[in-house]
């Protein structure tokens, strides 16, 4: 364009420039139009109702911040690193929720990474076939999968029957209604959400980079550590973010598989909604949302948005 406008003088040149700008603006408008239906849909059917629900925290039943009071009212104190921290059930539940989400995320990563790696290193057609096995759990409702875990973990479940039959135990292990069962059930549900972004990023890694590293003298372990691992980090970040944030909102699995102290925030929210304490339910939901956004912000701040959602391609 520079060469084109080089010889144009005065008004001619300005006219030309203006026309190009006009064209560019029209181009931009076209993208806006393409996005419009989805944006309108989201605002009308998601944004508005969610906002309407969450704002209840500030006026239901009466205007003010009283819905947040139970969250900051200390019912007891907990000694932690020599400090006594004010505590109540709601803070405990938020803490338990974060703990569960963190463990689920870390274990899902440890289990999902090798699977995604294997999927990304076979041919695309075979990977598509194997991907079906990753996705099969998606076809079954969360409830049914939770029940499947009950069949496995129960006092007379398959695992205990096997242990007793093999003579490895004389008393059945307590597996069901424990934190362990919650982890198992949630990790089972979350694994595909970890594997898919990992796989997408790993597929995008140029295999020639790995060959080049080998050619330059790197044994397979060094190729993985120095090349593959760093290039797969955007997938790790995206997978962890997805799993962590989805885990924060879990409800059915902990309710069915957990013990008495495995209470997650969404169970509390449900409780408040059914008690018709919508304002307090909204306050809990709002805090959970802020927590999720905060963690998202932290992730993108530390890793950079581009690394979380960007690709590994050069």
């Amino acid at each position: 364009m520079a060469a084109l406008t080089h010889d144009l003088q005065g008004a001619d040149r300005e006219g030309q420039v203006a026309r190009f700008q006009h064209l560019r603006r029209r181009e931009q408008w076209r993208y806006v139009l393409l996005l419009l239906p989805a944006v309108v849909f989201l605002i009308a059917f998601y944004g508005y109702p969610v906002a309407a629900m969450l704002t209840r925290a500030f006026y239901d039943p009466v205007p003010g911040l009283q819905n947040f009071e139970p969250l900051v009212t200390a019912r007891s104190t907990v000694e932690f690193l020599g400090l006594s921290i004010p505590m109540n059930a709601y803070i405990r539940v938020f803490w338990i929720t974060l703990q569960i989400a963190a463990v689920v995320t870390i274990v899902s990563l440890l289990l999902g990474y090798p699977v995604a790696y294997a999927l990304s290193s076979v041919s695309a057609s075979r990977a598509n076939l194997l991907m079906i096995f990753v996705l099969i759990p998606f076809w079954t409702s969360i409830l049914v999968r939770s029940y499947a875990w009950m069949v496995l973990l129960g006092k007379e479940g398959i695992i205990n029957e096997a242990l007793l039959a093999a003579g490895l135990r004389t008393e059945p292990l307590v597996l069901l209604n424990t934190r362990l069962a919650v982890y198992l059930g949630m990790i089972h549900i979350m694994l595909p959400f970890m594997i898919l972004p990992l796989y997408a990023v790993m597929r995008g890694i140029d295999r020639n980079l790995l060959r080049a590293a080998g050619n330059l003298g790197a044994p397979p372990s060094a190729v993985f550590r120095r090349i593959f691992l760093p290039l797969s980090l955007p997938g790790v970040a995206a997978g962890c973010l997805l799993v962590f944030i989805l885990s924060l909102g879990f409800y059915i699995t902990p309710a069915l598989l957990g013990g008495q102290k495995d209470v997650m925030v969404s169970m509390l929210i449900q409780q408040q909604i059914s008690l018709l304490k919508w304002g307090f339910g909204a306050a809990l939901a709002l805090v959970l949302l802020i927590l999720a956004l905060g963690i998202y912000a932290l992730f993108t701040r530390v890793l950079g948005v581009e690394r979380v959602f960007g690709s590994a391609r050069t």
Binding site: D206, N208, L209, R211, A212, N215, L231, A312, R313, T314
Partner: peptide, 12 residues
């Protein structure tokens, strides 16, 4: 030594 078609420089 090898020079690859698209250079295969490590982007990170």
């Amino acid at each position: 030594g090898m020079v690859f078609q698209n250079y295969a420089l490590f982007p990170h």
